[in-house]
């Protein structure tokens, strides 16, 4: 094996290893400690309005997702990184899961625990799309992930449908700060 080949081999191995977490994040069950620390709560669609109001005066980021949705799972590391770095005095983050609320202890909590999501996740009971659209003040079509950014006056941006990167979200938030 030449030096170049060996070097490339290491590069390729590093590449594959870096991809592994994407596939194996749910391979091992979360520890009891991780489950305990996972911030997961079930809320009604009616209370979403109140949750939005709690962010009054701040830019509020709302992310709609579910554990069964591959593009949703893919964007979560970026959202988690965004949240950890966000100035909490200026930015609020509302993560709304549309997973089956009755099964959230079996699905959402272990997932949130394993992903070490820093933000609280609210699982919606009976997430009726029309009702939720009214509460959020936007027209939702059911495609997830969807991200909505509200400016400091509470005016929503056009929903961002599909995965969003940390940079894209930062740019959206900056426009509204």
């Amino acid at each position: 094996m030449t030096f170049t080949t060996r070097k490339f081999g290491w590069f390729a191995l590093a590449g594959i290893v870096s991809v592994l977490p994407v596939f194996s994040c749910s391979a091992q069950p979360p520890t009891p400690e991780e489950l305990k620390n996972a911030k997961v709560e079930t809320i009604t669609v009616a209370s979403v309005e109140q949750k939005l109001k709690e962010g009054n005066g701040k830019v509020v980021v709302v992310n709609l997702w579910a554990t069964w949705c591959p593009p949703c799972r893919a964007e979560l590391p970026d959202l988690n990184a965004f949240y950890k770095e966000a100035d909490k005095d200026k930015i609020a983050f509302l993560s709304l899961s549309v997973d089956d609320a009755e099964e959230q202890e079996k699905t959402v909590r272990p997932f949130v625990a394993k992903q070490h999501l820093a933000f609280p996740v609210y699982v919606l009971k009976d997430p009726d799309l029309d009702e939720l659209s009214k509460k959020l003040g936007v027209e939702l079509d059911g495609a997830i992930p969807t991200t909505i950014v509200y400016n400091r006056e509470g005016k929503p941006s056009k929903p961002w449908v599909g995965g969003i990167s940390k940079k894209e979200l930062e740019d959206l938030v900056k426009q509204n700060l």
């Binding site: 893919a74 964007e75 449908v161 599909g162 995965g163």
Partner: peptide
Amino acid sequence: LLMLGCGST
């Protein structure tokens, strides 16, 4: 593709 998904509608 997996990470970015798509922002366009």
